[in-house]
């Protein structure tokens, strides 16, 4: 089942800086939206607010019509929304399998003790993102950037999300790795996953999204079809640096 995300009049202030300025948009179930904007536009700050890592100054965040602003990050994940990070955050001294295991772990101390790990599910998740069985025992330091992104996707998928927020998912990847990750996102889209994707690689982003939203200096400046947004004057001026 896919999740619906609604952002209403979201505002985030860091002292005198307005990082998110009255932003509203909706991502329908199963839809994939590209969130674009220049560096420092406030894209990641929106992700952090959706996940509860930063509390918004005002505004509402709803998943499936339910307000989630008061929920902690793990509770939001339980509600069905998960994210990846610009810089992958693996558990450095743990194997690939153990990294995925953390994502599969139930948020109950009792169940953590009484329920053993599920190696079959760990392998299934690893393979679903394109990691090989022999990589399960490896440490993150032994993985390429592409494989680290795959590992992060696997750990995120382990939390059973219905909506994924992908932050700069193509950053630091080779052309081949971008193709692999794109294929993975496409197949998850086919399975009905809702996506909000941030990427500076517009060429790689285009085939993955139904629509796009552009923000600049915390404000929403354009939304609609990908081509319309890219053709928007304000977007070109701010994001592409052209009049």
């Amino acid at each position: 089942m896919s999740a619906k995300l609604e952002i209403r009049n979201l505002v985030k202030r860091f002292g005198g800086l307005v990082a998110t300025n009255d932003v509203s948009f909706t991502v329908e179930p199963g839809q994939s939206i590209g969130l674009i904007g220049p560096n420092g536009a406030g894209k990641t700050t929106i992700f952090s607010q959706i996940m509860g890592e930063h509390q918004q100054s005002s505004g509402d965040i709803l998943i499936d019509e339910n307000e989630i602003s008061r929920l902690s990050t793990p509770q939001r994940i339980l509600a069905g929304v998960s994210r990846t990070y610009q810089v992958p955050r693996p558990f450095s001294d743990m194997s690939v399998a153990e990294n995925i295991r953390v994502g599969l772990t139930p948020d109950s101390i009792w169940q953590m003790i009484t329920r053993g790990p599920n190696p079959d599910r760990e392998l299934e998740l690893a393979e679903s993102v394109g990691l090989a069985e022999e990589q399960l025992a490896r440490l993150p330091s032994e993985l390429s950037m592409g494989d680290l992104r795959k590992l992060e996707m696997a750990r995120t998928l382990a939390t059973a999300p219905r909506m994924m927020l992908l932050d700069e998912v193509f950053a630091g990847l080779t052309v081949n790795e971008i193709a692999v990750i794109s294929k993975l996102v496409q197949s998850m889209r086919d399975d009905g996953m809702t996506f909000l994707i941030v990427s500076h690689d517009l060429k790689a982003l285009e085939p993955l999204v139904d629509e796009a939203i552009a923000i600049n200096q915390g404000q929403l400046i354009a939304e609609g079809s990908y081509s319309d947004v890219m053709a928007d004057k304000a977007v070109r001026a701010s994001y592409l640096g052209a009049e």
Binding site: M51, E53, S72, T73, P74, I77, L78, S82, R83, Y85, R89, P90, F91, S92, D93, M94, V102, G103, T105, D107, R155, A158, T159
Partner: peptide, 12 residues
């Protein structure tokens, strides 16, 4: 190893 990533994995 990474407290934020634990939270981001759905654990309190």
């Amino acid at each position: 190893m990474n407290e934020e990533a634990v939270s981001g994995s759905g654990l309190s």
